[in-house]
């Protein structure tokens, strides 16, 4: 191990020194810009990024990226920066922190959506613009009449049938898709993966429900480890199911037979799926405390107290990390 003591060299100049007159490779405007941003670092996340509260996630990202262009130390690679190096590092660190906090907050409370959640879960490539469906329908009918293309048309019909069955009989739908693939449904490439995804999703959520049931049974029998196992399988099968993630994290924590990091992933998932669910926040916080991640735990406990300022458990845990 190479280890050397640098003797704690202090980069910061004494307070009386005027940083604007420091001899570094930066022009005066840039120095002013850096000092101005540095003076804002104690303020709220929006201000730090130069935004007004209520901006969209997209705006947060772009503000972060634009600010990074100015304040990331790599933009001044190989330059003599003096005290400004530490300033830039501080500013950039705070920018990333603000970006992360706001991004996560906006993710928890996303703007209202126009489409239904089940459509949202299918991947993008399958989605056709409105009106395109009718035209495609017509074209497929025309193609079906052409003898050379009839196998492709049949494949198309199979995919359509699969789409109808995807929700009620996902297994059947997957079978139909396999048949369509065997026929070489060339023009169906765009749609088949989306149908397949939906069918798989449906199947997963059915199996997920089964696992939830066996998890509940294990709880009744008082077997924490088995419950944790079943719930986490349920959450793996259907990662969008908030109760599965929450129960899995909670029972993994209780059983204590598996790595905490695993429980943390589950708890994190529970929190992102249902940010206003106080017990999820608490479980995540508790796991973080046990993993020695005090600052993360603190963040989630504060979120929990926002939901219910009088929650005794959250208060008690918060005392542990302070």
């Amino acid at each position: 191990m190479g280890l050397s003591s640098s003797g704690g060299a202090k980069l910061l100049p004494s307070g009386t020194h005027d940083p604007l007159s420091e001899a570094v490779d930066l022009d005066l405007d840039r120095k002013r810009e850096i000092l101005a941003r540095e003076s804002q670092l104690a303020r709220d996340d929006w201000t730090v990024l130069g935004l007004k509260p209520g901006a969209t996630a997209e705006a947060v990202k772009l503000a972060y990226f634009e600010a990074s262009r100015i304040f990331h130390p790599d933009r001044y690679y190989g330059k003599n920066l003096g005290s400004y190096r530490a300033r830039l590092e501080r500013i950039f660190h705070r920018l990333s922190e603000a970006h992360e906090a706001l991004t996560e907050a906006l993710r928890r409370a996303p703007p209202p959506r126009t489409t239904s959640p089940s459509r949202q879960a299918t991947p993008g490539p399958g989605g056709n613009p409105p009106g395109a469906d009718a035209r495609a329908e017509e074209r497929r009918a025309r193609l079906a009449r052409h003898p050379y293309l009839s196998s492709k048309a049949r494949a198309g019909a199979l995919v359509e049938e699969a789409q109808r069955q995807a929700r009620s009989a996902p297994e059947k739908a997957l079978h139909l898709l396999d048949q369509a693939r065997a026929l070489g449904g060339g023009q169906q490439k765009g749609r088949a993966p989306a149908v397949e995804a939906e069918a798989k999703q449906q199947m997963a959520s059915k199996r997920s429900e089964d696992e939830m049931q066996s998890g509940n049974a294990a709880v009744r029998e008082g077997d924490a480890a088995a419950a944790a196992h079943a719930y986490s399988r349920a959450s793996e099968l259907d990662p969008h199911r908030p109760d599965a993630a929450y129960e899995a994290a909670r029972w993994a924590l209780k059983a204590g037979d598996r790595p905490l990091a695993e429980a943390r992933v589950l708890a994190q998932r529970a929190v992102s799926l249902r940010p206003d669910h106080l017990p999820s926040q608490l479980v995540l916080a508790e796991i973080c405390i046990r993993m020695g991640m005090g600052s993360v735990a603190r963040r989630h406990l504060e979120a929990a107290l926002k939901l219910d300022p009088r929650n005794a458990e959250a208060k008690a845990l918060l005392r542990q990390v302070r």
């Binding site: 191990m1 190479g2 280890l3 050397s4 640098s6 003797g7 704690g8």
Partner: peptide, 15 residues
Amino acid sequence: LEQSITVTASGGLTP
């Protein structure tokens, strides 16, 4: 009381 170090892992060769 304060102390600080720069930590560099060794790549196998000593300085």
